[in-house]
Design a protein around this nucleic acid. Structure first.
Lengths: 248, 248
DNA sequence: ACAAAAGTGTTTTTTATACACCCATGC
DNA sequence: GCATGGGTGTATAAAAAACACTTTTGT
């Protein structure tokens, strides 16, 4: 905050030492492939220097009149078509020398990244391939070294996802309208690992919360007993707003 | 991210529509007056337009070569002298029109604020009054309307403080080397309100964690039985790192 | 002696964890 | 009929919550 005006009035001495910033938004977009039991993150390949040909998180510059969150949604919409998603601000990375271009044009320009974290439904998400570009879902466990400090951003986003899943109902923003309890369970095990609770206890806890409505409909998927299809009851969930919630 | 260079090379069409940013850091600095049972936040009075004469959060512009966190520490050090504190990034507010100067010099310049949240020890903190200025601890419940969107930032910081206190040991960063269990209890009740747990249960839970060492020393403060003075044992605490922690 | 503050213990309720077992379907 | 996945129940352990009581000080 405080730009030219204050520099002239209040701080003429230090005016050269202030940093000028380019502000961008980078998204850590996760999805869960429950069939293959993999947590995926969306990566794009850089089409120009620096880091030409390296994978990185999808990012964009913020436009005039556009909020940071709008920019995050825009970048997401440019890369994938998806109806339901969860998105929130993650962290702001703004240290010096996080972008090699800072030294090149050496006007003291700094590159700041406000990162956002998103979770989308894998089965629904449709990747938008632009002409040239590389764009792909990468299993989080197999992500290569990323451009800039994006590996660090991704690691931070991964931790946030795990916490979010345990303490808030993000999963339901990403599940289809009708889903089975084991759909949820698969999602949780994939993201959190196998050691958090067995199916039976997970089930009991979730149902006791009372915001899952059993439609009576059944889903038959190959062998085994057909599962009940549930619906998220946002009215019944409303009373949990503000209260801390543990889902695992 | 991506500034002049990319504008010329990759996106000449939209170059006018991109926003330029002034980046500042604003701190929400809390302290707890356990004697008067009040949660306090540090406010300063603006010395220039816009919002001349209004209270706001202490903030600063980021300098060349200075990280965001460095800037946050610098602004804190300019306002108070304090040895122990907890500080972390809070949130980045960067929507359009959050600063009236945007419309004035209308070059499309945007004012972005990376906010930091800090907790310091009230008894130890010494306010640094610069020549003219107003600077004061305000009870959070009695804070007036603040300049810019700082009321919103404060509200966000307040929520974060409450969560932090419940789930992490921030309190111990702010307690003196030797403290009594009721010191901690007072701190918790002041921040979280009176309805979280009674003293007896709070005590039992905290001691069971095993990282508080009873020095055997006693603190006698007026009437009543003298309290044992405890010490935070960071070695014994180490095993709780990474694990989720609930303190209330 | 008694009020005030610290500290201990006990009882009840709730929640977590680990299982064992029954149910409905496809092949 | 049996493998496969869905669903229920139970027994035990641990934790949370409520509250009664004892101890040690100052006055």
């Amino acid at each position: 905050m405080r730009g030219q005006i204050q520099r002239k009035i209040a701080d003429p001495v230090n005016s050269q030492t202030l940093a000028d910033f380019k502000v961008g938004v980078d998204n850590v977009i996760f999805s869960v492939d429950t069939l293959l039991h993999r947590l995926l993150v969306l990566l794009v390949m850089r089409q120009q220097e620096p880091f030409l040909g390296h994978w990185c998180l999808p990012g964009t510059l913020v436009r005039q009149g556009e909020s940071l969150e709008d920019a995050a949604y825009r970048i997401l919409a440019e890369k994938i078509r998806v109806k339901n998603l969860y998105l929130e601000q993650l962290y702001t990375f703004g240290g010096p020398n996080r972008d090699p271009r800072e030294s090149i044009d050496s006007y003291g320009v700094r590159y700041l990244s406000v990162s956002y974290f998103a979770l989308v439904r894998f089965e629904e998400a449709e990747l938008i391939a632009d002409k040239v570009s590389g764009i792909a879902w990468y299993p989080v466990k197999q992500v290569p070294q990323l451009a800039f400090d994006h590996s660090e951003i991704l690691a931070y986003g991964h931790r946030r996802l795990q916490n979010k899943l345990e303490y808030s109902p993000v999963a339901f923003d990403v599940l289809p309208d009708l889903f089975t309890l084991s759909d949820i369970y698969q999602l949780y095990t994939t993201v959190l690992g196998e050691n958090f609770a067995d199916y039976s206890n997970f089930r009991a806890r979730l149902l006791k919360l009372g915001f899952l409505y059993d439609t009576g409909l059944k889903a038959s998927r190959g062998a085994g007993r057909p599962a009940s299809l549930y619906q998220f009851d946002s009215e019944a969930f409303a009373k949990f707003k503000d209260k801390p919630l543990v889902f695992i």
